[in-house]
């Protein structure tokens, strides 16, 4: 049997199974910690840092840190909120995120986080990098302008033989995620849809489809990301 540990988040007493990651433990206790590179069922990576919390005064990523007895976790600390805002703003200026022209707008996790943290304008200058759209795959479109390099597609999508379809190309600020042209050709409709669902932003799209839900009926039009956890 798993041992149960007691800990606090922003002073609220919580309980969870030992070894559970802080994000999941918080979720079970009705507390939302924002995530972006984390995806249910995929091994956490801790790369986007949006889930940063203070654990006994030290900053740690909640998706990769397991809970322990008597942990004092701060999730609403001003410093933490400011850090998260800065991460969101950096992601917006680093790529080309034209929300009004994006098929994923309204269902995008990055945009939803910006809404939740009321981003009116990024404090950093826009970089407008030159990036391409890869439309060589028969089923998927990969828009490098919108990719935030969270690696969710690399980590979550494998074909029936266990081979990865997506992979990192190039290095440093030129890095991008590409589709394997050979394995990608045989992509099933099901796996293509799963890839699109896994992508938090509009960097992966099904060819010939978009803007299917009207404004007002999309996932984050009326409800903030994480409100489902908080209102459990």
């Amino acid at each position: 049997m798993n041992q149960v540990v007691k800990f606090t988040i922003d002073g609220i007493e919580c309980m969870a199974a030992q070894g559970q990651y802080i994000v999941d433990a918080a979720k079970e206790n009705g507390i939302y910690i924002p995530t972006l590179c984390n995806y249910p069922g995929v091994k956490p990576k801790g790369s986007c840092r949006i889930c940063t919390v203070k654990v006994n005064g030290r900053m740690m990523t909640a998706c990769t840190t397991p809970v322990a007895e008597n942990m004092q976790i701060e999730n609403q600390d001003n410093e933490i909120i400011e850090l998260r805002k800065a991460i969101i703003e950096l992601l917006f200026i680093e790529g080309n995120h034209f929300c009004p022209a994006c098929e994923k707008s309204g269902n995008c996790e990055l945009q939803a986080l910006a809404y939740r943290y009321t981003m009116m304008v990024p404090r950093f200058p826009y970089t407008f990098p030159q990036r391409a759209v890869d439309a060589t795959n028969p089923k998927l479109i990969k828009d490098q302008n919108r990719c935030i390099l969270c690696k969710r597609c690399i980590r979550a999508i494998q074909d029936e033989k266990g081979r990865s379809i997506f992979a990192y190309h190039k290095r440093s600020n030129k890095v991008e995620i590409g589709l394997d042209p050979k394995i990608g050709k045989g992509l099933t409709d099901e796996l293509a849809q799963k890839s699109v669902d896994v992508c938090p932003v509009g960097a992966l799209l099904i060819r010939g489809r978009g803007f299917e839900q009207p404004i007002g009926q999309r996932k984050y039009d009326k409800q903030a990301i994480g409100s489902d956890i908080e209102n459990m």
Binding site: F92, N96, F98, C99, P100, A101, M120, V121, P122, Y126, F128, P129, Q130, R131, N145
Partner: peptide, 18 residues
């Protein structure tokens, strides 16, 4: 006051920036 995405980040016209 910057009103709208175009004033804030260039908006659709800025799609030519690349």
């Amino acid at each position: 006051v910057s009103v709208g995405e175009c004033a804030i980040m260039g908006g659709l016209p800025a799609m030519r920036n690349g």
